[in-house]
């Protein structure tokens, strides 16, 4: 499956990475080249059974005890005020893409 310029624009938008038009062709070539090596996977028959490890996951007790912060949140933050992290105001503060 060759990658198109539109594909690159689309994934760059999803990944919130600004990609200049001038970079697109190079990325198309690189990603298509890498993905060409992945085509071998498509041919593999993987119908055989998958992993059956019921490993499970450790659970924590519902007791306070978070990892403490050795320095204030403000120290590493690009912009904070009154304890809030600040970002440029959302154009649509009801942006529909977020879920409840």
């Amino acid at each position: 499956m060759a990658v198109s310029r539109d594909d690159v624009r689309h994934v760059a938008a999803l990944a919130r990475i600004g990609v200049a038009e001038a970079q697109l062709d190079a990325l198309v070539t690189e990603l298509s080249g890498i993905l060409a090596h992945m085509e071998v996977l498509v041919q593999v028959d993987t119908t055989a059974g998958a992993a059956d490890e019921p490993a499970g996951m450790p659970l924590a007790a519902d007791e306070p005890g978070s990892v403490p912060l050795a320095r204030a949140r403000e120290d590493g933050a690009p912009k904070m005020r009154d304890g809030f992290f600040l970002v440029p105001r959302l154009a649509t503060h009801d942006d529909g893409e977020r879920s409840a």
Binding site: R81, G83, F84, F85, L86, P88, R89, L90, H93
Partner: peptide, 18 residues
């Protein structure tokens, strides 16, 4: 859950409380 975005507290900014 996600955090909370406050849009009307600081002019020009959205304030984030996690």
């Amino acid at each position: 859950d996600a955090g909370k975005s406050v849009h009307d507290r600081f002019a020009g900014y959205t304030a984030i409380d996690l």
